[in-house]
Amino acid sequence: MTVPGSWYLVLSALLFSLGALGFFTRRNVLIMFMSMELMLNAVNLTFVTFSRMLGDIGGQTLVFFVLVVAAAEVVVGLGIIVAIFRRRSSATADDLSIFRG
C-alpha cells in the first residue's frame, strides 16, 4: 500500500506536539532537552516529506543543516547543563527559579 504524504505530515506534527508536551510537562532538564530534540527531528521529517512531495531535493539538504545545528546545540546545551548541575543532586529544571516576577 502507498502511504499518502499527508500521513507523514500528520505524524511529524504529532511528534512535534509530543516533544512540546514533553517540554512543558517534564521537570528533568535532560528529558526536556530530549523533547526539544524530538521536536527538531519532527521538523526534519516534515522537510523530508515535503521534499518528496514537491520533488525538490532542497528539502532534504536542509535536514543536514538542521542536524548540524542541532548537534552544535547539544554540545553547548549539555555543557551548560553540566556546569550548572555539577553541584546539585538532581537535574530538576524547576530549581532554576531564582528569577521570577
Binding site: 512540546a20 532538564v29 526539544m36 527538531l40 546545540e73 553547548v76 551548560i80 550548572i84 532554576l96 527559579s97
Partner: peptide, 20 residues
Amino acid sequence: RESSIKYFMLGGFSSAIFLY
C-alpha cells in the same frame, strides 16, 4: 548559569517552532 539555561532551553524550543 540559571539565566543561560533558561535562555538556552527556551531558545531551543522556539528555534524548533521557527524551524517547523
